[in-house]
Amino acid sequence: MSAIALNLHAAPRHYEDNPATRETPWIKWSIVGVSLLFFALFLLLPLATVFVEGLKKGWDAYLAALVEPDALSAVTLTLLAAVIAVPLNLVFGVAAAWAIARFEFRGKQFLITLIDLPFSVSPVIAGLIYVLIFSTHGWFGTWFADHNIKIIFAVPGIVLATIFVTFPFVARELIPLMQAQGKDEEEAAIVLGASGWQTFWHVTLPNIKWGLIYGVVLCNARAMGEFGAVSVVSGHIRGYTNTLPLHIEILYNEYQLSAAFAVASLLAMLALVTLVIKSWVEWQAARAASDDLRPE
């Protein structure tokens, strides 16, 4: 037994350690080189540029660009849109994934297609649809105008557009996960006398936890970074309907390059934080999955 264990320990654990499966150095290093070059050229360099350009005029100018009232209002609006859109899509995503993964019903395929719609429709068109429906000249515009509710070129329109474009993230993440897990555990809970809510809270939710967090992180990144749809419904009213990406565009168009990059660095940092959380969640989920797959 111990001999076998020793052998296993000594056995190569990667293809790389085993001469029989190793590539020649020439092939290996050219593949690694090409990948690294691409990575540096198209990802690392632009990212570095954002920070370098942002800091070109020094720390004071950088900070001034960030605390300027218009920038602050853009940050607030971006956060507001995300704070509303992400929880709504979280609830919707879980409900939709539950329905699709657990039940058979008419129109299920249609529902899946609908959930994917925001991925396949250009965000600009999504924005235009909202303008068509809610603007003063739109279908319901007169009704809203009569009741003194402003949607287009106002905060509600931005929130609506954000919800639309971030709609699929949570549901898309959960559907395959829940389908793979099956409904045995939930059925077991119900047979044992658990109510629907107890089953969801004690059985379903813990099982989809990592997938859910992953979906929320992606959803949040997109909610804060969305440009196209929001741009159409916003009307670009400074200090009122500008989100961070829109604010950056205005600064850029006014040749305030340094300020534009300074604000852009905020979004870049958000992206970095998102990546870190995403990697951590993936690592956790992989650990949980490898626990499940441990041989019997």
Partner: peptide, 15 residues
């Protein structure tokens, strides 16, 4: 949940 049956699944279905 009110039938008070015990059910054992082929693939265990442990939480």
């Amino acid at each position: 949940r009110e039938r008070n049956v015990g059910f054992v699944f082929q693939h265990y279905a442990l939480f």
